[in-house]
């Protein structure tokens, strides 16, 4: 029943795998080359780009997109998509602001609050995964709904206000420095380390690749597709929650607009880094490169006096260009 209709081409003797190889090698290095070129161009126009102060600025701009991008990478590696980034992040930031020492109520739960927020991130991810897997609702629809539920819930909790965060530990993520960089940057790097371990050294990470490479084959090999999918969404939810903590720290408060525009940057970073939307190809390291491309470009535009509002448009064009260049059209007869 499921015989592919492309048997005509697959039997061709010239369909050697060799061509494939060079394609992917180039695809995974192209973002690095783009990043280096970008740096060279901006630095030659404005040498301030290479100052330590600017590196710190770039690192601070990159930390949240990086953490969000790590989570999204795992989802995209499965060939799915997660649009709930802003929903989870906003909910996390708002709940955090209400639980730590703040200007609106008497709570001061400190680390416990952080833990609670991480659990909430995982729980929302779990809901995403269960709806997606058990009800067979495509991920973009599930997460679109959860996106708005998350933001709506944050709004309902706040009732339109913003809550000031007074907790020194949380504020310290943005203010306190270690080796010249904000603590939050180090936290983001730690997240990158964790993501690398999960990606490369756990069964979950490897099974995510397997699902992206061929779900039916993965299932035939005895991998529980449902379990892997749900756990991947939970993992992503935790990363978004950490993104929410960092965002709250950076802003110094929790409000319902804290997530605005973050989904867009996240998706841009992941696909510009070269992770394929079709799944199976890419890595969290490539997402790091993608994040740096997006952030460096934005930084460069600021240095050159381009208004920030243009950046969104540029990111949009980058998404189209990156996806168009990385998609393996031979594998996709029907695109929806």
């Amino acid at each position: 029943m499921s015989t592919p209709t492309t048997s005509a081409t697959s039997a061709l003797p010239d369909a050697t795998p060799a061509k494939h190889v060079s394609r992917f090698r180039l695809a995974s290095w192209a973002p690095v080359i783009v990043l280096v070129l970008l740096c060279i161009i901006i630095a030659s126009i404005n040498p301030n780009f290479l100052s330590f102060g600017n590196f710190v600025r770039i690192s601070q701009a990159a930390m949240i997109p990086l953490v969000l991008g790590l989570g999204a990478t795992f989802i995209i590696l499965m060939g799915s998509i997660d649009l709930s980034v802003e929903g989870v992040l906003t909910l996390a930031a708002v709940i955090l602001s209400m639980l730590v020492l703040n200007g609106a109520n008497g709570n001061d739960y400190g680390l416990l609050a952080v833990l609670a927020v991480l659990v909430i991130g995982a729980a929302v991810g779990f809901v995403n995964g269960v709806i997606h897997v058990k009800l067979k609702v495509p991920s973009f629809m599930t997460t679109l709904g959860i996106w708005f539920i998350g933001v709506g819930a944050a709004n309902a909790l706040l009732g339109g206000m913003a809550i000031r965060i007074n907790d020194p530990m949380i504020r310290g993520l943005a203010i306190e420095r270690f080796l010249g960089f904000a603590r939050g940057v180090w936290l983001a790097l730690a997240c990158l380390g964790v993501a690398l371990v999960v990606q490369n050294y756990t069964r979950l990470g490897r099974h995510i690749y397997a699902l992206g490479g061929g779900e039916e084959l993965a299932a035939l090999s005895g991998i529980s597709v449902a379990r892997v999918r749900i756990m991947a969404f939970m993992l992503a939810g935790v990363f978004y929650a950490i993104g929410g903590i960092l965002a709250a720290a950076q802003l110094g408060l929790g409000n319902a607009q804290i997530g605005n525009g973050r989904l867009f940057t996240t998706v841009t970073a992941v696909v510009v880094g070269g992770t394929a939307l079709s799944g199976g190809q890419g890595s969290v390291l490539q997402t790091l490169v993608g994040v740096l491309i997006v952030v460096v470009l934005a930084n460069g535009m600021v240095l050159m006096g381009v208004p920030p509002s243009v950046q969104i448009g540029v990111q949009g064009l980058m998404i189209i260009a990156a996806v168009a260049l990385s998609i393996d059209r031979k594998l996709m007869r029907i695109v929806k």
Partner: peptide, 11 residues
């Protein structure tokens, strides 16, 4: 077609 081409041989 029954190997996952994006994984290593050992995997």
């Amino acid at each position: 077609q029954s190997l996952l081409t994006n994984l290593s041989v050992g995997e």
